[in-house]
C-alpha cells in the first residue's frame, strides 16, 4: 500500500479504531449500558429506532440549514455594511462583540416566549449564533484592501463603490466562504441547543426524551447521528469553499511574491 492510500484510509481506520477500543473497554470493565453503552448497542439502537432517528435528524437538518441561510444572507449584508467604512466598523463592532458574547442558550427562553415551542426558536437560535463569524470575515476582507491598490484605483478616479465592486467584494469572498464552515457548525449547535431546551422534534428533543427514559443507547445513537450530520454539513461547505475561491488557495501556495 502506498503512502497516499494509507493517507486516504487513515480517517476511516482511526474512526474504526476508536469504536473497537470503546467496545473492548466496555466489555473488559463490564460497564453498565445505562452509564456508557458499547458501540454495538448503539448501532443496534440506531437500527431499531431508525425511523424516529431519521425523522428527527431531518428536522434538525432543516432548522439548521434554514438558520444558516438566514445567517448567510444577513451576515453578508451586514459584513459589507460594516466593512464599508471605518466609522461604521468602529461604531458597530462593540455592539456586535457584546451581542456575540451572550451565550445563546440564554436567548432560547425569550424566543420561546415570543414564538412558542417548536422549530422557529431553533431556526432563530441557529441564525443568531452563526451570523457573527460571517459578518466579521466579510468585514475583515473589505477592511484589509491593500492601501496601495486603493491608491491606484483612486488616482484613476474610482469611487468607493468602484473600489468595493472591483476589489473589496471579490477579495472578501475567500474570507466569506471560509467563514461558512464555522457558521454551519455553530448553526448546528444553536439548533440542537434550542431543540434540547424547548421542542418536541429534532435530535435534541429526541435525546432529551430518551435520556429521561434512561434509554442510553438511543441517546448515544442520537449523538452519533449528530456527528454524522455535522461532518456532512461541514464537508458540503468546505467543498463549496474550495470550488468558489480556488484562486485564494493557489495564490498562497505559489512561490512568486
Amino acid at each position: 500500500m502506498t503512502n497516499r492510500q494509507i493517507e486516504t484510509l487513515a480517517p476511516w481506520l482511526f474512526t474504526l479504531g476508536l469504536f473497537v477500543f470503546w467496545e473492548l473497554a466496555c466489555r473488559l470493565f463490564n460497564v453498565s449500558s445505562v452509564i456508557l453503552p458499547a458501540p454495538s448497542e448503539i448501532f443496534a439502537a440506531m437500527v431499531k429506532y431508525s425511523s424516529p432517528l431519521l425523522k428527527n435528524s431531518f428536522v434538525t437538518l432543516w432548522t439548521t440549514v434554514a438558520g444558516f441561510l438566514l445567517a448567510v444572507g444577513f451576515g453578508l449584508l451586514l459584513g459589507l455594511f460594516v466593512g464599508w467604512s471605518r466609522t461604521i466598523y468602529r461604531g458597530l463592532y462593540p455592539v456586535m462583540i457584546g451581542f456575540n458574547s451572550i451565550p445563546k442558550v440564554a436567548v432560547v427562553p425569550i424566543l420561546v416566549l415570543w414564538f412558542g415551542i417548536g422549530e422557529v426558536p431553533a431556526i432563530l437560535t441557529a441564525f443568531l449564533i452563526s451570523f457573527f463569524p460571517i459578518v466579521v470575515n466579510v468585514a475583515t476582507g473589505l477592511a484589509t484592501i491593500e492601501p496601495e491598490l486603493e491608491d491606484v484605483l483612486r488616482a484613476l478616479g474610482a469611487s468607493k463603490l468602484d473600489v468595493m465592486r472591483k476589489v473589496g467584494i471579490p477579495r472578501s469572498m475567500p474570507y466569506f466562504f471560509g467563514s461558512l464552515k464555522v457558521a454551519i457548525t455553530l448553526a448546528f449547535v444553536g439548533a440542537v441547543v434550542s431543540e434540547t431546551l424547548a421542542s418536541n422534534a429534532g435530535l435534541g428533543a429526541l435525546m432529551t426524551q430518551a435520556g429521561s427514559n434512561f434509554q442510553m443507547p438511543l441517546v448515544f445513537a442520537g449523538l452519533l447521528a449528530l456527528a454524522i450530520e455535522g461532518i456532512g454539513m461541514y464537508a458540503v461547505t468546505a467543498w463549496i469553499e474550495a470550488r468558489m475561491t480556488g484562486w485564494a488557495i493557489r495564490s498562497q501556495q505559489s512561490a512568486a511574491g
Binding site: 491593500e146 491606484v152 488616482a155 484613476l156 478616479g157 472591483k166 477579495r171 484562486w247 485564494a248
Partner: peptide
C-alpha cells in the same frame, strides 16, 4: 484624485482572481 494618473508600486498588487489580461484592463 486627479483621475488621469497611472501608478505602480514596489508590490505589483495584481488581483489574484483575475488573469493578467483582466488585471491590465482594470483601469
Amino acid at each position: 484624485p486627479v483621475k488621469l494618473a497611472g501608478m505602480a508600486f514596489q508590490n505589483a498588487n495584481m488581483l489574484p482572481w483575475r488573469t493578467v489580461i483582466e488585471n491590465l484592463m482594470l483601469p
